[in-house]
């Protein structure tokens, strides 16, 4: 990869304060295969960042690394959230520190009801919205509370996956392909939910194949290529820049 397109130095907040969220030169591996190759970027409090790139650029792996999943294994680099060193934590501790991953394929837990999926999210401290608050915001989930969650439609499962994250005290929301496999009409519905999440001021990183949808929601964009940050800038700028779109996003 050429130096000219390499990441611009990550910007720090005005006044030189520590960023709310930062990954610094993180390297992560699936077994011996080197997937995340020195990614660095920062996110300000309340900001939404779209993490973009072609298939295999390392987007999902980067999110999973931030959430401190067992795989890919983080071998070096630092991850900081609100002053806490996520890179030193196991998965459940990172989650308790406020990272909340809404994974690809939603990962609704099978064999239990909608409500039980929400209860499981509220076992560990610190909690976010109460189940009553969630039902107020998502009446559809209230209707289906006793249904086995995995039998709901894809859109409803995605709604539950987002609600489950809000049931925790979320400081950094990681959305992995929230529109994947959903019909266009349902995508609109999920988009409006995510705009509502945005209005709550929750700091968010969104990974999405549908880059335009992600950019319309996001304040800023970080583009990954071959496991590294290739571009970082305003979301609007990427939307308007055909060269960038051709080179990294093929849209």
């Amino acid at each position: 990869m050429s130096a000219s397109t390499h990441a611009q130095p990550a910007q720090t907040d005005a006044g030189g304060q520590e960023a709310y969220f930062a990954c610094r030169d993180i390297h992560a591996y699936y077994g011996e295969s080197y997937i995340v190759q020195g990614v660095s970027f920062e996110v300000r409090e309340g900001e939404i960042v779209a993490l973009l790139g072609r298939n295999g650029a390392g987007k999902t792996s980067t999110l999973r690394t931030i959430a401190r999943a067992h795989d890919p294994q983080l071998r070096s680099g630092e991850i900081w959230l609100a002053g806490q060193p996520l890179h030193r934590m196991p998965t459940h501790r990172a989650a308790q520190s406020g990272v909340q991953l809404v994974p690809e394929d939603r990962r609704i837990i099978p064999g239990i009801t909608v409500e039980e999926n929400l209860v499981v999210a509220q076992i560990a401290e610190p909690r976010g919205w109460s189940i009553e608050q969630i039902y107020e915001h998502f009446p559809r989930l209230a209707e289906r509370r006793k249904q086995e969650a995995i039998t709901m439609s894809g859109g409803e499962q995605q709604m539950l996956a987002v609600a489950r994250a809000l049931a925790r005290d979320v400081k950094l929301l990681l959305l992995d392909e929230p529109y994947e496999g959903l019909a266009p009409q349902i995508v609109q519905e999920i988009e409006s939910i995510l705009r509502e999440v945005k209005s709550l001021g929750i700091t968010t990183i969104i990974v999405e194949q549908n880059a335009i949808a992600a950019l319309e929601l996001a304040d800023r964009a970080v583009i990954l290529d071959m496991g590294e940050v290739a571009y970082e800038g305003e979301a609007n700028h990427v939307l308007d820049n055909q060269e960038l779109r051709d080179q990294y996003l093929a849209i």
Binding site: P90, P103, P110, E116, V119, I123, A124, R168
Partner: peptide, 18 residues
């Protein structure tokens, strides 16, 4: 409930702080 959930998807249960 936690045990049954963990039997089905242990990683997701960890992502929820448990």
């Amino acid at each position: 409930l936690v045990i049954r959930s963990g039997m089905r998807d242990a990683e997701m249960v960890r992502f929820l702080g448990i």
